[in-house]
Design a binder for these strands. Structure first.
Lengths: 244, 244
DNA sequence: CGACTCTTTGAGTTGCTTCAAAAGCGGTGG
DNA sequence: CCACCGCTTTTGAAGCAACTCAAAGAGTCG
């Protein structure tokens, strides 16, 4: 490996859009170079599957841009989305034998992936990285447990309202998005990254129920739905009320 | 600190019943001594609350013996149990500001607790501990996400059947319990550590629905219910079928 | 302009919840 | 030992939210 390569590899991470939000945030320059040498970039097309539930865990990685869904299903074929991975999020199962759920791209997604073995070895030698990963995993566990309250104890309207508020919050953290998404009582129209069926799969509902409640929230003047893939929040306070 | 103290402190952990299952498992003798010096033992009575949702995270710890519930509730007062902590499990929120859910003892519970600040500092200096905690957190996240499938996509019978099978598996990992709990197609009567209402709060159901399905499974010859707090599985295969 | 997919709307059914009351169990004291 | 009390669990009846099944409407793409 010559110096030019090293520099250019460093550059790749330095200019990375998620450099400060992903688990690599606290690494030193020399560590970044090392990590870069075991990783590679990969682009998934919408609908492409990255990991399969129950298969050997061979890959882990960071989402750079795009959106992934993590999901499992019952034997009868009902699907439950157990998480969405936005830019900066880590996916895959380090230190484990098999991937516990499937991972599929919902939109064209750029990633930074590692062979799991390589990543595990690197992580064990770099406590700063393990620490970041631990913090991220703890946060994700908290978020997942909060979602259990939604799945177990909320009615359809509360679920949908909570989902929309959560999505706005998540999207406004992403780069290049309107910071107005967080301000006042109305939120300008933004693009929903997923369709009705997948919203249903996140909320543990059917597509019909999701659709009916979208319609109701629109009729009640809380939402506007300029197109199927766009939502505007006309009255955030009212939506928060509906979220319970 | 004199040698006698050190030895006796080491002894405490060495004889600990969860020594090989908790996050301290991989620590060296000298690390154990240090960890011991910042921890203390505490016994909770049944019903006693250890942590409150939304409060400053001041404590973390390991369950040595007993059972804790982790739970949140909606503003309307509906409760959702988001996890149960058995012996060997870690509870509390390291590296974070506030406890994301309440923690309460369901039975008399012995714990080994640490001030969160002390624990955080210790963990950062001992990567082996952080690694164990990371592995445990990853496993817990997997378990929690599998539970989302239950909450979002299963009907009441599937939920109860899955719960019972899961509980038998968890209990049989605990010390001093009949190893027969894992063997064949029938499982001898064992004590349910929680009542019907709490089972309902785990499964996202009402107590009446839980009770009805217990009765149905008994009528169908799959379970026996010698008393309210005891269950025997007469036909594990059938129960697994019902779990979906 | 059709063919396809996704979404919305409608009608009817079901399973879980709610509300109410009875039954079971454990503990305490007469 | 039994009677009584409080608490948990079971059972019953009625209501309703979400589901299923079915079809029409909207949007997208060749």
């Amino acid at each position: 490996m010559n110096v030019t390569q090293v520099l250019s590899q460093t550059e790749i991470c330095q200019s990375c859009t998620i450099r400060n939000r992903a688990i690599c945030a606290d690494l030193h320059a020399d560590e970044i170079v090392l990590l870069n040498s075991i990783g590679r970039h990969r682009t998934l097309t919408a609908g492409e599957q990255l990991l399969w539930e129950g298969e050997d865990a061979v890959l882990v990685g960071n989402v750079v841009e795009g959106l992934l869904k993590l999901s499992t299903g019952t034997s009868e074929g009902r699907e439950q989305i157990v998480g969405l991975a936005y830019p900066g999020d880590f996916v895959g199962r380090p230190f484990g034998g098999t991937d516990p759920y499937g991972v599929e791209a919902l939109a064209e997604t750029r990633m930074c992936v590692f062979r799991r073995q390589d990543f595990d070895a690197f992580a064990r030698e770099h406590p700063r990285l393990e620490h970041k990963l631990l913090e991220r995993t703890l946060t994700e566990l908290d978020r997942t447990r909060r979602w259990m309250l939604l799945l177990g104890r909320m009615d359809a309207e509360q679920k949908l309202a909570t989902f929309l508020l959560d999505m706005v919050e998540r999207l406004s953290g992403a780069p290049g998005l309107n910071p107005e998404l967080t301000g006042g009582n109305t939120v300008p129209a933004f693009a929903l990254p997923i369709g009705r069926q997948q919203i249903a799969d996140v909320l543990g509902l059917t597509i019909e129920t999701v659709s009916r409640h979208f319609t109701r929230l629109k009729k009640d003047g809380i939402l506007d739905l300029p197109s199927r893939r766009e939502v505007a929040i006309l009255d955030r306070a009212a939506l928060q009320d509906r979220a319970g």
